[in-house]
Design a protein around this nucleic acid. Structure first.
Lengths: 215, 215, 215, 215
DNA sequence: TATGAATGAGAATTCATTCAT
DNA sequence: GATGAATGAATTCTCATTCAT
């Protein structure tokens, strides 16, 4: 029994998968670099090393492709979030950990920032239509809620902190600094992306969040 | 507030200044609504009620027009900032005032958020070339520095707060919530722009900033 | 000579080579008729019976298309020059032959005159960038040099004739009469393109060149 | 009696004349540099330091302005030709003089070459409509005819030389070398406008014409 | 005589997308 | 599954020319 042919006839479909993955990666790069409106279908095909027609075959059109890119990008961050085990840490360390995870993820994934920025400029016109996105609930809100509750019970954290608000705030403090660093740099005339500046920023955000949460 | 002027596009009748202002206003609206790449020169001319050619006559090209829009937008916020008199208030009130001013300005000027977002997606390619922008220094950093120093001397505020970091943080907390509310809404399945939500957000930001600054 | 093909524009039906040839031919006609600045991309597409977009697909832009037209035009004359076998003839006949070939080629190819005239008005801005053009060396200079040398050795031709100067002179005498016949006609009030006038011109040029070369 | 005011009330009209002259000069430069199609009315006004509207006031439109430029350019060369006194010289010197005059005029007036080249590309569409141009007869044909006849009678020149043909030939030999030097340079890979090259060219043309005419 | 403001028609070029194989 | 050929509708920008003062 030759396993290769009878059991799993996937060679062709494996190629297909690889092609689709190549397109998706190319699209993500292209849209991250130029935004949705500035992204070029031609360039995506070129980057992926495939014929343009194939892109339409697999993804329908530019809008659908962009949505798929967004969904996969969210998928990535959700997967990374799963790796966080805030319940193993004491509340302060957990909060610190959440902040540094969020910061580092943003620093390491500029395409995430760019894609979200682009989609928001479009008033989430793509994501609004997505069913998948609602199913990809972030575990962070629940995690954060638990941490805050634990800290409060231990008398360390102040009461009444809304985990959604705090989560948004942490995201704000990380995202904005990086997304708007270009205009901020132009205005302040100082490079905000130097390693030292990045380290200082993380330190500041941590101080801010802990200073607020801790009684 | 006479309603007569707001609705119809101001007809450009041999009044160069008015025509230029009409074009600038139309461009700001168009770019705010669709971003730079998505903004259409044709539509700007239509909105301004002028011939497209005139737009090029006065502003050169789309890029230059966008830069002018950005500069004028910064001019507006700088003018508003001048009205703040934080030195008249005690440190805590001053900080509170700064936060609420920043928040309200962002809430009242969605075009500011949109234009900045768009320019950052372009890596500040327009602003980088601007000489004007560097001359339009924000008085806020200096104001904030003074406030922090006063609070520290009075033993109210913690020492060692970097005013630039804090200023960026306040801006982050305001800007991001509004700029990214579309995707946030899609994810949380809840409308972040309802009046109640906006009030809660301001309250949260204020708590966060004061909780951090106050010893 | 089947008349079937010449009149209607060749429809471009998924035959890339034919389409490209049709575009090139249409471009040559258009530019010959209206010059580079006066030539219209729209009209070229129409003449070629193809969609304008396709023209950009194959040739990049108007400038590159014009350069390609120039190169192909030079290619044509070079090919024709290859057919001359001056070495088979005695020196006087060879010179006579060179003159009549040059004259007839110019008479038969008004587009060559027009295209060169246009390019020279642009200070050869296209050709200067061409690598191909330098590789397409004319065999004529070498041929002429040999003929002149043979004639000199036979004691028929004068010594010290620069073949490049003479080649340029022959070209001048042919080209100018035809290129400038419009203004010359306007000034002299006489039609220079009548068959009789053309024959007289060739006769004059031949006399001039031989009268100079022959001792 | 103050002569300035009563007798000649031309100050205003003198300004007008100066303005018209400035426009004409600017137009000549512009068209010489960019050709008719490439010439810009805006730039002409700018070069002349006047308002565009004035240009239309004085010259009607772009086509009429170009025709005026052509006519004035012809006027200039006709005036220069008047200065030639070939009848004072012996036939050989007269011919030599005619050649060098023609050559030098072309070398010194590149705008003449450029403007004629441009107009011929347009099939003399402007000049054809000109009445003035026919009235500006060149004295050269008559002069040359006399010279040739004198030389023939003295037994120096060959018989049967058509003065119009020879005149066109002399013009060809001068004009083409300069008008087409750009493409010739690109093809030969050698600069044809160096002083030494120019001197050699004049020498060659003189040899050619005399070699032909002299028995 | 002189001018700044304004325009309609048209120019090159681009883009996402579909057709035919 | 995969591809090169082909397209219609826009998009930015330009130009000669005219209007109103």
């Amino acid at each position: 029994m030759t396993a290769s042919k009878s059991a799993t006839p996937i060679p062709a479909s494996r190629d297909a998968e690889r092609t689709q993955a190549a397109i998706l990666k190319a699209a993500r790069d292209e849209f991250a670099e130029h935004g949705f409106a500035g992204g070029r279908v031609d360039r995506i095909a070129q980057r992926a090393g495939i014929n343009k027609r194939l892109l339409y075959y697999y993804y329908g059109n530019k809008d659908d492709l962009f949505l798929t890119v967004l969904e996969s990008t969210y998928g990535d961050i959700r997967a990374a979030e799963q790796m966080l085990h805030l319940d193993m840490l004491d509340p302060v360390d957990a909060l610190r950990q959440l902040v540094s995870f969020t910061w580092n993820y943003h620093v390491d994934h500029p395409e995430f920032i760019s894609l979200l920025g682009s989609e928001n400029l479009l008033r989430a016109s793509h994501l609004k239509e997505s069913k998948k996105i609602l199913e990809m609930n972030s575990p962070l809100i629940q995690m954060l809620d638990t941490v805050l509750e634990r800290g409060r019970r231990q008398g360390i954290f102040r009461a009444g902190i809304d985990p959604v608000q705090l989560y948004i705030s942490i995201a704000s403090l990380c995202f904005f600094y990086l997304s708007n660093n270009y205009t901020l740099s132009a205005i302040f005339g100082r490079n905000l992306l130097m390693p030292k500046a990045l380290a200082e920023r993380l330190s500041h955000i941590t101080d801010l969040v802990l200073g607020y949460a801790i009684l």
